[in-house]
């Protein structure tokens, strides 16, 4: 049996691990878990703030995966498959209303009011501080905007995949991203964003 963890050589491609897992190999299943747990959490935390809900959903999708392993098709893109499973599960397990929330502009407006008081120079900012500021800026986005920013810039997902995952047209995803940029642009006046976007306008 191949070494799933790939200690001594290249790690096995997902496709091969997936095949072993489908044949009921628990080690392969664990490898999939180890490969995708963190990634899933990094997306999941944009879908719900409720840790218990997220844990339940992650648990449920892996158990579901294990239970239905024999009936699963070949999966080209495991990450996409798991993301969709997680999203669907969170919708089904309910309670968080992220998916019904429309774009929430109020939080952003509140933020704008407070913004004028903080005038910091970028040059003096460390990378860490910049990241923090970007984080704060992202926090002002609506839930769906956060989700789309997460998928796009953390997970590097294509517009096609995002549109399939979120159940939106590609155009809507694109618009959602543009709207997010607009918010971020205002939020990050002092950062590269502003300079860049204004200079281009």
């Amino acid at each position: 049996m191949s070494n799933f963890l790939g200690n001594d050589s290249e790690p096995l491609p997902d496709g091969i691990v997936w095949l072993h897992f489908k044949q009921g190999d628990q080690r392969a299943f664990k490898v999939l878990y180890q490969r995708y747990f963190k990634i899933l959490c990094r997306y999941g935390c944009r879908l719900t703030l409720d840790r218990q809900l997220l844990e339940d959903a992650v648990h449920d999708i892996f158990i579901d995966l294990w239970r239905r392993r024999e009936h699963l098709a070949e999966v080209e893109n495991i990450k996409f498959y798991l993301f969709r499973a997680l999203r669907n599960r969170l919708v089904r397990n309910g309670r968080n209303n992220i998916f019904e929330n429309s774009e929430d502009i109020d939080g952003f407006l509140d933020y704008l009011v407070s913004l004028s008081s903080e005038q910091q120079s970028i040059d003096s900012e460390s990378l860490q501080a910049r990241v923090k500021r970007v984080q704060d800026a992202v926090e002002n986005l609506s839930d769906r905007q956060k989700e789309v920013i997460n998928l796009r810039f953390y997970h590097g997902m294509s517009l096609d995949d995002i549109s399939q995952l979120m159940g939106l047209s590609k155009q809507s995803v694109s618009n959602l991203l543009f709207k997010s940029y607009a918010v971020l642009r205002l939020r990050l006046k002092e950062l590269s964003f502003l300079t860049m976007l204004l200079s281009m306008a």
């Binding site: 664990k30 878990y33 180890q34 747990f37 963190k38 959490c41 990094r42 999941g44 935390c45 944009r46 840790r51 997220l54 844990e55 992650v58 648990h59 892996f62 158990i63 294990w66 910049r130 990241v131 970007v134 984080q135 992202v138 920013i149 997460n150 796009r152 810039f153 953390y154 590097g156 950062l191 590269s192």
Partner: peptide, 24 residues
């Protein structure tokens, strides 16, 4: 892109990998 990536990467880790695995 890199800043947004970093920002999202540095979100607090929500769950404990080992703990969830034991449950699974």
């Amino acid at each position: 892109v890199l800043e947004l990536h970093e920002a999202e990467k540095n979100l607090p880790a929500a769950l404990d990998e080992d703990q969830v695995w034991s449950r699974i």
